[in-house]
Design a protein around this nucleic acid. Structure first.
Lengths: 215, 215, 215, 215
DNA sequence: AATGAATGAGGATTCATTCAT
DNA sequence: TATGAATGAATCCTCATTCAT
């Protein structure tokens, strides 16, 4: 199976019913394209082929709709990253695997990816970040896998001694840019391009042990 | 003078009057925080301590206001990047200089920086990108300095043979992430952190000449 | 049945619902009195006992509301004129019949009549006239019954050889004035007054056959 | 001198100064075209090449501006009608003379004519009419010349025994229609057309003495 | 006297949300 | 349960009027 093959979007697997799924999909598609404020409930209702009032049977209000979708999409995102992930592999392999997951998710779920971007660049996102920082409420208490890779890699002196945020910036930052460009049609993300990009990411964060040490 | 020292925001230097400047600043501050659609004209008027109608004396409508500010901020951004830039320096120095400029601009003009981010993540930004791509109208015909560095660096086999978009992703992507984190208070961007981050960016895109060449 | 007896205004017969009819009636009443620009949507909403937003469920915007009403009223007007009209009658009878129709319509539908006047004296009306003149688009291609009467009457040398516009001016001009005066309470339009007015109209446009014939 | 020859508009002869005249002319031109509500003060100021505030030096507010202009135009209108009027002539000649005046005024002062029309078809006009009716305030107490012609003509059994309003409707109604059509370019009002139209007006209101006399 | 920048009340329109069916 | 008509608060924008210069 190729990275570009279509697959049933994760975000509705396990949904409680059909209408709910239709609403979620419509919301993702529309918000990913027009943004939160550019997407009226009426438009969602129409795209979902559902009455406007029906949306309020499933979600308290527009905020709740978006928030709930974000959490679902975020969960799906993590799931994709962790698919076939083996924590016993070497650090570099684990890093590459996780980053591949981001590419996979973004390419296979462009709407969901852009939705997340919209979300992070909205007041929601800011609020969420702060909450994640200051109170460890929610289920975000568990250490994220990438963080684990970084801390372990640093302990093994494979990864540079940069702040965690910086390591994330140097690995996820480029990928986000690339996936967005890919969705916008500005770049063709074939496997070799992805491979060399991931190599570049690794170059950015890894200690260049090989050159001096080995020899 | 330190990177963190405050300075008069560029975007109003040379403004035609006081009210106009107040409006621009208020808009930048508010949109950087709440986004375009989350910032009503009335809120701008209040923040600018100006009547709502006054805004329309200076700008045709809300779109024109935002567009004009974006163009000004973008110009200021380029100016900051190119400050004391010397195209005769070695590629790596030029790369570092330009990237430092981004950090400088983002740290000294956090509102402007977030404003630009909001802009690029809105339908405006999408449109703008497409226009830049398909028609080389406007004054965007001149090659951007970073692009020049990349193409020159590639010609000298100093920089990896990645697509231009990918090179940009690997240099600007991390910086944008870091500046945003810095503005959000999630990381302290002191000079040494910036230096090591820029080193990481260079590692990502540069050919590791040393290893192979030396031997 | 007397000319002055009230009757259900034509313009809502066959309306799709109640609210729509309320909106139309309120609009006609208010615009007939205060004019297009003197009648805010909020006033229409209040008069129609309807939320302001409701109006936009039925009409795209204020222009569409007015335009649609005008077309309906115009249609009703024509219907009233042509009621029991017999094209086989002598010219004078046909002329009188049609003009009586204008009186009937104006007296029984004073608001609609003044609405039409407002419309014709607004930029809408001017535009409409020009369109009618220059392109025979729409369904205005069919000759109006009064025009037919005039051309036929001229062919029979019963009606003066004046330009069509002049004939219309001499027949409709006085009637419009009279109906407006009647609505304003400045004149009592009983049947005998109408009869003698119509006789005057006929005198204005008809060839005085009698005199010459006798001699 | 031909009816179509240009002449200095009456409405500013004897004005107190230049600015005032400019304002009045601009207002007439613009309101005649766009209507009262379609003509902002700012537009008048621009057309008059005068500061917006200046208008308020000469007129209390927009209402006063329009009202005052109307009174002036109305006075000019009467003046035009009465120009070289001889109350000792036969009734028909006097009638023709006065009606000719209306044509003259309308053709030579199309903006003023349309302004008056706009005025009469606005709430102002309605109000004015009522005031004219119920209280004989203002200087409207004097009998209008046309009224005098009608009453005298009726006394001489030359003019039909119709209500005064009806006589006005049958004489002014057609003329107003014709002048409006002329201004709109829908008809060419040369002298012979005007003559025959006035003949038609006379036919409408006059007793057909000839027929019966002959017998 | 003349100006036109500044104001804010008021107008058109949108849209999240409710509720009767 | 599902609907979509109805609502009115909130938004963008206009424009009559004021007032400092």
């Amino acid at each position: 199976m190729n990275i570009h093959s279509k697959q049933k979007p994760l975000s509705t697997q396990g949904g409680t019913g059909n209408k709910r799924g239709q609403i979620i999909h419509a919301t993702i598609r529309l918000i990913s394209e027009y943004g939160f404020h550019g997407t009226p409930i009426s438009m969602i209702a129409q795209e979902a082929e559902v009455g406007a009032g029906t949306i309020y049977r499933y979600f308290k209000d527009k905020d709740a709709l978006v928030l709930e979708i974000f959490e679902q999409v975020n969960k799906d995102f993590t799931t994709t990253m962790l698919h076939e992930y083996d924590a016993d592999q070497p650090i570099q392999d684990r890093f590459i695997h996780l980053c591949w997951g981001i590419f996979r998710f973004g390419i296979q779920n462009p709407h969901e990816f852009k939705f997340m971007e919209q979300f992070y660049n909205s007041p929601y996102g800011t609020t969420l970040r702060r909450e994640k920082l200051f109170c460890n409420c929610g289920d975000s208490s568990q250490e994220l896998p990438l963080d684990k890779v970084f801390s372990t890699g640093q302990a093994q002196h494979l990864i540079k001694d940069l702040p965690l945020n910086a390591l994330i910036a140097h690995s996820i930052g480029p990928i986000v840019f690339l996936v967005k460009d890919s969705i916008a049609g500005l770049i063709q993300l074939d496997n070799s391009t992805i491979d060399s990009s991931l190599k570049a990411c690794w170059d950015a964060i890894s200690v260049k042990r090989q050159e001096s040490d080995i020899q």
